[in-house]
């Protein structure tokens, strides 16, 4: 992310309110997005907090408010990647733990197939998993997914196709 030349002033009413509205309306959705990738709710919330802090500092550059949500999603994905790298290092140094951090209540209600699907999804290459989550959880178009990830729509198409094929194969449903 590019640094700003001009700092925003704390308490600027219009801009702060707009970002505040985004925070109120979107933070839960963004936490869910992060949770799909890093399977740790506390870490997911911190990733989203970090994303909003960065958006606050970069707000003067997000001149188009409609771009702000895309900026936040991109920041959440970047933050999730960083946390994931850190968590993997931590996991290597700790005793074996469940691959899924669901609560006991959630684990009870989660179907076996759903758990399998999420486990396989998290084992895919990072870009494939991100493309699948953006396309089929957030229902973003190929163009919107490409813009969020900073790659071409053609690459999105390829990642989605390969990701779905890998899911089908690993779930025992070869096409």
């Amino acid at each position: 992310m590019v640094s700003t030349d001009e700092d925003p002033q704390i308490g600027e009413p219009v801009e702060a309110i707009s970002l505040r509205q985004l925070y109120v309306e979107q933070r839960w959705s963004l936490v869910r997005l992060a949770a799909l990738l890093i399977h740790d709710r506390d870490q997911s919330e911190e990733v989203v907090q970090d994303a909003f802090v960065n958006a606050y500092l970069a707000w003067d550059r997000i001149s188009d408010p409609s771009r702000a949500l895309a900026y936040l999603r991109s920041a959440v994905l970047n933050g999730a990647r960083s946390r994931l790298r850190h968590l993997r290092v931590v996991e290597r140094t700790q005793a074996a733990r469940s691959p899924d951090q669901q609560s006991p209540e959630a684990a009870l209600v989660a179907g076996e197939e759903h758990r399998m699907m999420i486990t396989v999804l998290r084992s895919l290459p990072r870009r494939q998993a991100e493309c699948l989550v953006l396309r089929f959880y957030l229902d973003l178009s190929e163009a919107e997914t490409a813009s969020t990830l900073g790659i071409s729509p053609g690459s999105v198409k390829t990642h989605v196709h390969r990701g779905l094929a890998a899911l089908a194969t690993r779930l025992g449903d070869p096409r």
Partner: peptide, 11 residues
């Protein structure tokens, strides 16, 4: 996949 993602995030 959609079902699984929706189920996962519901928790």
């Amino acid at each position: 996949l959609r079902d699984a993602l929706a189920h996962q995030t519901a928790s």
